[in-house]
Amino acid sequence: MAKKKHEEHENHERWLVSYADFITLLFAFFVVMYSVSAVNEGKFRTVSESIKAALHPIASREASALAFNVGQHRPALISPNLPGTKEVAIRRLRDFVKSMQSMSQFALIHMLERLDGSVVITIPDQVLFNSGEAALKPEALPFLQGLAQAMLELDRQVRVEGHTDNVPIHTAQFPSNWELSATRAVIVVRVLHELYGVPGSHLAALGYADSRPLTANLNPEQRAKNRRVEVIILEDKMTAAPPDGSLNPEGAPESPGEQLPADLLPPVVPIH
Rank of each mutant, 00 (worst) to 15 (best):
A67L: 13
A67E: 08
V70G: 06
K98I: 14
V88H: 13
T24G: 11
A67K: 13
W15R: 02
N69T: 15
A59L: 14
L26G: 08
R45A: 10
A54S: 13
F27P: 09
S104L: 06
P75Q: 01
I90G: 02
S79K: 02
K43M: 00
R14S: 09
S18G: 06
P80C: 00
V32W: 04
I90K: 03
M103E: 11
A65N: 10
G71Q: 03
M103R: 13
D21I: 08
P80K: 00
V31F: 02
H73V: 12
F22N: 10
I51P: 02
A53V: 06
S79A: 07
L66H: 11
K98C: 14
R94L: 11
S35T: 15
K86T: 05
A67P: 10
V31D: 04
S64N: 08
I90V: 05
G84Y: 01
Y19D: 11
V17T: 08
G71H: 00
L26C: 01
A65T: 12
W15P: 03
L82Y: 08
R91M: 10
T85Q: 10
F27I: 13
A38N: 06
P83E: 06
V88M: 10
E49T: 11
M103A: 10
A38I: 11
R14P: 05
R94M: 08
V17R: 03
S99E: 11
S60Q: 13
R74S: 13
F68A: 09
K86C: 05
S99I: 08
Y19A: 12
L55G: 09
E87S: 09
V70A: 11
Y19S: 10
L26Y: 09
P57E: 07
T85P: 07
R74Y: 13
S48R: 12
A38Y: 09
H56F: 14
F68E: 02
Q72G: 15
F68C: 02
L16D: 07
K52Q: 08
R91P: 07
M33V: 08
S64I: 01
R61P: 09
A20L: 05
I58P: 09
N40Y: 00
K52V: 07
T24R: 10
V47H: 07
A28C: 07
M33Y: 05
N69I: 15
R74Q: 12
S37M: 04
N69K: 14
S37Y: 04
T46Q: 05
I58C: 13
A89N: 01
K86H: 12
M33N: 04
H12V: 06
A65D: 11
A89D: 01
A28L: 06
I58S: 14
F68D: 09
N69F: 14
L55V: 12
N40S: 04
Q72P: 13
Q72M: 15
M100Y: 07
N81T: 10
A89E: 00
F96K: 05
A38L: 12
V47Q: 11
P75N: 02
R45Q: 04
R92Y: 06
T46Y: 00
